[in-house]
Computed example of a mutant assay.
Amino acid sequence: MHTHETEQEQGHNYHHDHFGHHHHTDDSLNNIRVAFFLNLGFTILEIVGGLWTNSLAILSDALHDLGDSFSLGMSWYLHRLSTRSRDNHYSYGYRRFSLLGALLNTLVLMGGSVVIIGQAIPRVLHPEESNAPGMVLFAVIGILVNGAAVLKLRGGQSLNERAVALHLLEDVLGWVAVLAVSVILLFTDWHFLDPLLSLMITLYVLINIFKNLRKTLTLFLQGVPEDVDLQQLDTEILKLTNVISTHHTHVWSLDGERHVLTTHVVIPHTVSREEVLKLKEDIRGITERMNFAHTTVEVEFSDEECRIKEDC
């Protein structure tokens, strides 16, 4: 006997989850939209300021922010797309498009970092004079603008929001470095500090980029989400009454937040229909506590052959 969650139950669970996340989704879209307009407006100002002050740090950040503006706009679009309901083309909905936005953002950020490193190294070896007072002014504005955007995205739960927040955090750190350099340059002629600190900040951010990229690729390859203990899940199910064993237990995530579970549960062939229903309810209780958005459980009697031959 194979017992699955019915389409009606799935629809009920989907709509319940959809409305439960509606407020969070609106906040996410608003946060990314605000970050996009802040970043785009300030990028234009940076280009002018970088040329005026002859600061590599400012020009490099302007180039990076130009890429960020593109990435933020793309994230905004993909995040909006991810809120669409499921249809005949995407039966799980469009939430993985948000994950696609996180991946593309990370790749753009990596490309921008490589450009900055390529520009900074020659300037360390052959420093050029910069306009220190102008750098101080733009650094203060940069910290305020980008800091406001980071605060707007603080606590974002989706990988897309985290990727965007990483962009903006890099900008804040970069402007702190610019401010430190510009203050020093007010009193010294150590102009090599401008590209040197820009290089150090970029290398630091690259470390975080690779961490975020690893998480994103894991989800793309349907790896088990970091917040799910697969062994613990199996253990809890095995503790339930009438459960002999489990197999074909698979866990993956749509977007880093909404997780999916499928599993086969073997029970004695003497178990009654009422006991099967009770078991399903108990398993549902476990998966709800672990915040699974989609759960499919196939119940098999001990004298029944598994329809999936592999690993059975």
Rank of each mutant, 00 (worst) to 15 (best):
P127S: 08
R258A: 02
G111E: 09
E281S: 14
H22R: 09
D68C: 11
L221T: 09
F36S: 03
D234F: 04
V297W: 01
L72Q: 12
E300F: 04
A102Y: 01
S130C: 07
S130I: 05
D311L: 06
V183F: 00
L40E: 03
V224I: 15
R95Y: 01
S60D: 03
H16E: 15
L217I: 14
Y90S: 11
H64D: 08
L59I: 13
V297E: 06
L51Q: 11
S75Y: 00
I237N: 01
I308D: 15
T216G: 04
L125D: 14
H22Y: 10
L169K: 14
A35K: 03
G50C: 09
L125Q: 15
T3M: 09
R33F: 15
P225V: 07
T188P: 14
P195V: 12
I32N: 07
L196A: 13
L137G: 05
M74S: 07
H264N: 11
H259D: 11
G111F: 04
H2M: 04
L40T: 14
V265G: 11
V243G: 08
V150G: 04
H4E: 15
T263K: 03
R307K: 15
A163M: 04
N131E: 14
D27L: 04
H269T: 10
K280F: 09
G223Y: 04
T262M: 02
S253M: 07
I244A: 03
T296R: 03
Y94C: 00
T262C: 10
R273Y: 07
L186N: 09
F220H: 12
I308P: 05
G50E: 02
L196M: 13
A293E: 08
N105F: 00
L206G: 03
R86C: 07
G118W: 06
K215D: 14
D194Y: 05
V271K: 02
G156Y: 09
